[in-house]
Design a protein around this nucleic acid. Structure first.
Length: 578
RNA sequence: GCGCUCGUAGCUCAGUUGGAUAGAGCAGCGGAUUUCUAAUCCGCUGGUCGUGGGUUCGAGUCCCGCCGAGCGCACCA
């Protein structure tokens, strides 16, 4: 919160000293090291460097114009030209009062909301959702949540794989070998089985392959029977997707699969050809990037030599549709890192095709999930791990931990807590690492009660709640607004550290959407939980009296709110007890 | 061969326009408990940030070379 105000003041002061300077580059951020203070700016050193000025002299000049007396002690010029700010505890209390009144949640909604399309998850029809979908689903959902929290307009779109050559084989299987009972009990399993059977048959017998080709052509030409089967496959798949999404707490505004764009594909190729961007090459239509060293050797094929469209065509049609329909300022694609080249091509084609478009296009890519052997995560028998099984196991493992800790609680309660903890652990383990690095999937680590894990954070939240539960046994509910009107001192170092950390929630949320990195929020919440734990050890709340008690209750209340809101932004539920 | 990403403590990993003496967790050792739930907290041990150059007031971060790893390189998505 305060960094924004400080930033504005520093910018104003710089404008006085250097009227021509672009002050937007001036940033105030929390100090990396508390010894230097609470906030710092390094920007004056860059400004001085550009102008060949003495940085300390510039800093002195800026400080002379700088009035931050209402929030800070005397501003300190340090080192080569850092400005260090030490926040007055009264200013911290003032911001806290605002939060208690409900004026803000330690962040500021953006003044100019942008429209952001987030494309994530994208499972394939007739196939089970597996670990390969989890990172996209969880990262994308989290980014969408944080954008929304900050006040942006968000459109989430699940670009499901509901079209393609695999449907030829699926149709042959459906017509010849469908087991209706199996379709009832486990539709995805049955469709997966059909695909495997026919896929193998195609390899063995060219006649089957030809059959599959015929069925595909019929589907593409709008054959009524094949269309009906295809729609049923989509419907049954969607039911399964929805089950997983419900468990994960993920929702989409739109589910516009690849097939939705079929009617638009021809026009894409025609326009690109008419504009001279795409040209014939070895029978295919391709866009070449002769002026782009990175893509020079990698033309984008927008139409295969058999005349059919491919995924590049679909993605371009999708991009144009989204721009026309939602007029976004930004489109975020959350996929694994192997698709980097593909998206570079798509974006490069699009920039030439629509040079006037100003939307920001971002490929938010992520690394692989590895097993303990360092290879892609598989089951013991070498199968891809199904998402439903993964979630089941997470809940089972969490259940064991919860019952061990609380053997006297009823099973239903333990199950519910285990659900929150188990699903939360999976999500948190996925969001915590830098998204670009591969990470090893490790049950023990994600469900560990210590360290930077979901259980630790959820436990911190229950410690907040337990104080209010205990207090509620013989007092009326905590009245935040009344607390806001009461003067409260922040004197213990643990109180101040915790309170100051609350103030930085907004800074972190902004960093998350700026760089599309949820792990910043994970680490912030982990630090918050740690500060709360130290406060909890050092500062008795209910045993305290008078203004001290109010201050501490306020800290608990606000820590609880930020923890809950932060975890929610990550997509994690909370629990009152565990 | 070209491209992308990476190489940080014994292990797993953070590291915010380049910023101050590089941080966590785990493991190891030693402490704290008549608890507001100890699923906690405190202390100690542990580093030539792969390597060699360069840019500059300042480099884990930027540039170049080298070594090593993963991934990707037209008509699957």
């Amino acid at each position: 919160m305060l960094h924004i105000f400080l930033e504005q003041r520093v910018r104003a002061a710089v404008a006085q000293v250097l009227p021509e300077a672009a002050t937007a580059t001036i940033l105030v951020r929390p100090c990396a090291d508390a010894r230097f203070g609470d906030y710092q700016t390094n920007s004056l050193m860059s400004l001085a460097k550009e102008r060949k000025l003495n940085p300390r002299q510039l800093a002195t000049g800026v400080v002379a114009q700088l009035d931050v007396n209402e929030w800070c002690e005397q501003v300190e010029i340090a080192g080569a030209g850092f400005l260090n700010f030490r926040v007055k505890s009264e200013a911290v209390a003032t911001v806290m009062r605002g939060a208690l009144r409900g004026d803000h949640g330690f962040f500021r909604k953006v003044s100019a909301p942008r429209t952001v399309v987030v494309d994530f998850s994208s499972p394939n029809v007739a196939k089970p959702m597996h670990v390969g979908h989890i990172r996209s689903t969880i990262l994308g959902d989290c980014l969408a949540r944080v954008f929304r929290l900050l006040g942006h307009r968000v459109v989430t779109d699940n670009h499901v794989g509901d079209w393609g050559t695999q449907f030829g084989k699926l149709l042959v299987g459906w017509k010849q070998q469908l087991n209706p009972a199996a379709l009832q009990s486990d539709p995805i399993g049955e469709m997966e089985r059909l695909y495997k059977v026919i896929h193998a048959a195609c390899d063995a017998d060219p006649a089957v392959l030809e059959q599959a080709r015929q069925e595909l052509v019929k589907l593409q030409n709008g054959d009524a029977e094949n269309l009906a089967i295809w729609r049923e496959m989509i419907g049954r798949s969607q039911t399964q997707f929805d089950t997983i999404y419900r468990r994960l707490g993920v929702a989409f505004d739109h589910t516009l699969g690849e097939s939705f764009y079929n009617p638009r594909l021809k026009a894409v190729v025609q326009e690109l050809s008419a504009l001279g961007l795409a040209r014939e090459s070895e029978g295919a239509m391709a866009v070449f990037f002769d002026d782009n060293p990175e893509l020079k050797a990698h033309p984008a094929i927008v139409q295969k030599s058999d005349g059919a469209a491919n995924y590049a065509t679909t993605d371009l049609a999708t991009l144009v549709y989204r721009l026309e329909t939602w007029r976004p300022d930004e489109i975020v694609y959350v996929t694994d890192g192997r698709q980097q080249l593909h998206f570079k091509q798509i974006f490069a084609v699009f920039r030439r095709w629509h040079p006037e478009a100003r939307a920001k296009l971002v490929h938010v890519w992520f690394g692989a999930i590895l097993g303990e052997d360092g290879k892609p995560f598989k089951t013991r028998s070498g199968e891809i791990v199904k998402l439903a099984d993964l979630l089941d196991e997470a809940e089972d493992r969490a259940f064991k931990v919860v019952t061990e800790k609380n053997p006297e609680w009823p099973e239903a309660q333990c199950r519910e807590i285990a659900r929150v903890v188990g699903i939360g652990a999976i999500k948190y383990a996925d969001l915590l690492p830098n998204r670009q690095s591969d990470y090893g999937f490790n049950w023990d680590k994600m469900l560990a009660l210590t360290g930077n894990t979901a259980p630790y954070l959820l436990y911190a939240y229950t410690r907040v709640r337990s104080i209010f539960r205990k207090r509620g046994e013989n007092e009326a509910a905590f009245d935040a607004e009344q607390a806001a009107r009461t003067p409260f001192p922040l004197t213990a170092p643990e109180e101040l550290t915790l309170a100051k950390h609350l103030l930085n929630f907004g800074f972190v949320l902004e960093a998350v959407v700026e760089e599309h990195r949820p792990n910043y929020l994970c680490n912030y919440l982990y630090d918050l939980a740690g500060h709360y734990a130290r406060f909890y050890e050092a500062c008795p709340v209910l045993k305290a009296e008078g203004a001290t008690r109010t201050a501490r209750l306020a800290l608990c209340e606000l820590t609880g709110r930020v923890l809950k809101q932060g975890l929610e932004a990550l997509g994690l539920e909370t629990t009152e007890q565990m």
